[in-house]
Design a protein around this nucleic acid. Sequence first.
DNA 1: TTTATCATATTTATAAAACATTTATAAATA
DNA 2: TATTTATAAATGTTTTATAAATATGATAAA
Lengths: 182, 182
Amino acid sequence: MSETKPTYTIQNVVASASLFVKVPLEKVAKKLTNTEYNPEQFPGLVIRLEQPKISALIFSSGRIVVTGAKSKAMVEEAVEEIKKELKKVEIETTKKPEIEIQNVVASGDIGMKLNLNKLAFQLETSEYEPEQFPGLVYKVPKSHITFLLFGTGRIVCTGAKTKKEVKDEVEKLVKTLKKFVK
Amino acid sequence: MSETKPTYTIQNVVASASLFVKVPLEKVAKKLTNTEYNPEQFPGLVIRLEQPKISALIFSSGRIVVTGAKSKAMVEEAVEEIKKELKKVEIETTKKPEIEIQNVVASGDIGMKLNLNKLAFQLETSEYEPEQFPGLVYKVPKSHITFLLFGTGRIVCTGAKTKKEVKDEVEKLVKTLKKFVK
DNA sequence: TTTATCATATTTATAAAACATTTATAAATA
DNA sequence: TATTTATAAATGTTTTATAAATATGATAAA
């Protein structure tokens, strides 16, 4: 009898790209109010957009990092918007940026309570220190995927490159967990 | 079966010499733009050359230190160039400077992954504090040579006086390491 | 008071971590 | 109610450690 139908939602997509043009960050920071720039703290300039609602890092090399998106389409929209923002301060981009998805984060629910103390022993590649963090950290073997498992049955999947990878890994996780429950 | 052919490249040669003439650093600093002089910070004047690309320290005593060279020939070239620079500001050198190589730094690859945690115990005269610096520091016994060993198999050799010494020490190191791998 | 050592500055390879950004999750603290 | 703890990923700069000579000033131990 299987009562567990895992559900999950993509919560964050991080992507990188190159604008193929050097960016004078000091100048951009002065002219655009939706930016933050503290080079002695971090070399990238932070820009926050309302539509789509994301945050991005722009580096003087022209490389950018988009965070907070929910999908690849949203990342593409964001890059177009960043190009428009830069155009406002006379920075023209000619080449089409090649966008690369670097990380997909999803949260979900596997529909069953988890005994983390027990799981910490059953899952070889896991770490669980409740007084430090309430979730159990499970690094999937031979994979770059990491799960955060909570006693409530809620989970966080991070390190994926695609939506499909999230789906496959969550299904694999549920199968693994069910073995222990039996 | 020996899959490990160590490779290495001389990366830096530091040498000292005397010009056998007092140098008025304040005056030199004012007339030559390729120099830096902050006596309250450091007593030597810094001069940077384009051809050959090196940096040197000149002291009021007439002693100089050449850094950033790749070979002894490059050091000799540098000293000649420094003499020319000083001639521009009416400082004549008569005696031939005796150049002494003080340090030869080389980087290389021994072609095998290293378990630094294990090596830290096996190599008596080594120190390894990964949270401070990722490399293991190995001081070769009864020698002035020090190696930096990295988990990747890349190495740095420093403290040598000659190219030959680098070669011999790297070969010796590889033999030592292979003993532990077996 | 004298003799140490230490920091100042220069170069070079090596590599790991911190810095900042986002997002869900949840327990504890301030 | 906001922060801290932990996770992944990219971006790029700085710090960490090594050896050597040179020469000042500053502490620090004898």
